[in-house]
Design a protein around this nucleic acid. Structure first.
Lengths: 321, 321
DNA sequence: TTGAAAGCGCTAACAG
DNA sequence: CTGTTAGCGCTTTCAA
């Protein structure tokens, strides 16, 4: 059995109420304070947060629900969320739903049964359906990376369209004219936004976009194949924008295999591969999402909501290197 | 306020004891079972695990303590841990201590205050000092990736020495003779084991190891610099074994820059870079740690310990591709 | 099969 | 500044 506040009471001759008060910052006679502290030390007392939560209706834990932890975006963001929340003495309960909407719904209820004080979710779909059970209980909720249609949820997302437009405009500003794009599934809002951004920039430059567009399946192989198709259809392609992480790796391999030089034969801008690719191919450009900031802002927004703060929708800009 | 078992009692005309019994699998008259189920549905009842934990002394959550979540080893392992534990209805509380031993100790106490039923930790050092507070409370504990000196902890680690010896032997079996190694900080047991394995293989082949050894600082740049030094000292180097992930990336860049062809001019075996490197350099070899299995085994070991099972020490082999 | 009652460890009034 | 008392939501005897 664990040491409880009662053991401290017995040890010090005080009452559990006094000890509790002490732990919660009330003032206690110095003589007693010392006694309590000695007893804590001696017995190795650690407060039972569950009992506390039961009483206060505050568990001091929040849930984080992801489609996939084993990926740089999620891991980067979670690291920062954890850091920010820990500073406020909150714990982090993690659920990886493997991009499965069914598991997502289950996980929400699972986390609710752990009475989390709030939820940060990177939704597996554009729908907020699986979050219903949390929404109906007014659980503070922050969605990251993609919009949901719900108005009771805070959002922290990237300025996808703007970023895509800027990337494309930059490539065009280098004097490139045959600029392609490899984009993802258009049933996803985020992917549509990125493609739209590309098109806007092309249109502004008076260029025909459609013929340089290629769809990939968001995997490394998908990016590789899409890039090969594009290079085959347009051997004179002189610029390319890849709109997702995995596809960026695949496309880079394809470009390399084709014997093209990054930044010279072709202006290449990918997504989020900040480590190895720029090192191997110095001429490559990369959109880098502000993972740190996204995580921090999401955590802060959630904390504020837990304190009764309002729903917020925050759009962050990416950096281009 | 949330729906409680009392609300169900009122709704059904039963008593909270009966409802509780029902949830815990006791047999209840079909008529009442239906009433309970309807009430649960209608009210959206979700059981409060905290209250339950308080009573049963089982929180159904375990803590995971890492030096760094933003890295492929941790993310891969945690994914599998989460999956395995979720199947047993356990939740996962995550703490990233940023490789800081002080924060590690704090995190252990933090997790204990959340009354976790057990702890899986990837220690930030070879010492188990920061785990003391958990050990003294007999909290079930599993350490991954590195040994600690404690005898009350289960361990799940890689067969570091054996793997290193095999890798080196394989390179030698290709007929290479000038085979180098880039290793990490020798104050770390795991790093010593890997270097020892290399040396054993070299010695068995009657070769002088010492002159081909180079130490790196476990970063990508460290690997890059170490590789450059090695190539400078031994322009005729024809084999190399890199003993860590980040250094592998750096070393690969250095080899590539030197204009050497992987698998031809030099036999290159790195650690854990399974995605991009083999794709870019088909001749490259990689040690791949069984992250899935390590995670699963760690989770299963912890679960068994929670059920009163014994301490286990498990050594897993890596695969070489 | 169901109910009454007690208690897990803590906090929150309210008195003293 | 400290003690008394009640109760958070649940499970667990023990009786009925």
């Amino acid at each position: 059995m664990n040491i409880t506040i009662k053991d401290l009471a017995r040890e010090t001759g005080l009452t559990s109420a006094t000890i509790s008060a002490y732990f919660n910052g009330a003032s206690v006679r110095p003589y007693n304070r010392d006694k309590i502290e000695r007893a804590v030390e001696k017995l190795g007392y650690i407060r039972n947060d569950y009992a506390r939560a039961l009483r206060t209706h505050r568990s001091m834990t929040v849930g984080v629900l992801l489609p996939e932890l084993y990926n740089a975006f999620a891991a980067g963001v979670v690291t920062q969320i954890e850091d920010t929340l820990k500073q406020h003495r909150y714990g982090l309960l993690i659920c990886d739903c493997r991009s499965d909407v069914g598991r997502e719904g289950e996980a929400v209820r699972f986390l609710q049964s752990k009475t989390v004080d709030g939820l940060i979710v990177i939704p597996s779909s554009d729908s907020a359906l699986s979050l219903d059970s949390a929404i109906s209980k007014n659980l503070p909720l922050v969605a990251m990376d993609r919009y949901t249609e719900s108005r009771n949820i805070s959002h922290v997302v990237l300025s996808n369209r703007k970023t895509a437009r800027e990337v494309t405009a930059r490539i065009l500003a280098e004097g490139r004219r045959k600029v392609g794009v490899i984009y993802g599934d258009q049933s996803v809002f985020k992917s549509r936004e990125r493609l739209s951004g590309y098109r806007e920039a092309m249109r502004e430059a008076g260029l025909d976009a459609e013929s340089f567009e290629e769809c990939g399946d968001l995997t490394m192989d998908g990016g590789y194949e899409a890039m090969k198709r594009l290079l085959h259809a347009h051997p004179d392609l002189d610029g390319i924008f890849i709109t997702s992480y995995e596809m960026t790796m695949g496309a880079a391999v394809a470009v390399d295999e084709a014997g093209l030089e990054f930044g010279k034969d072709i202006s290449f801008t990918g997504f989020d591969c900040t480590k190895l690719l720029p090192r191997l191919f110095p001429g490559i450009h990369m959109v880098v999402q502000p993972l740190q900031e996204m995580g921090r802002v999401a955590a802060e927004t959630l904390l504020s909501m837990i304190e009764g703060g309002p729903v917020r929708n925050i759009v962050l800009d990416a950096e281009i290197i």
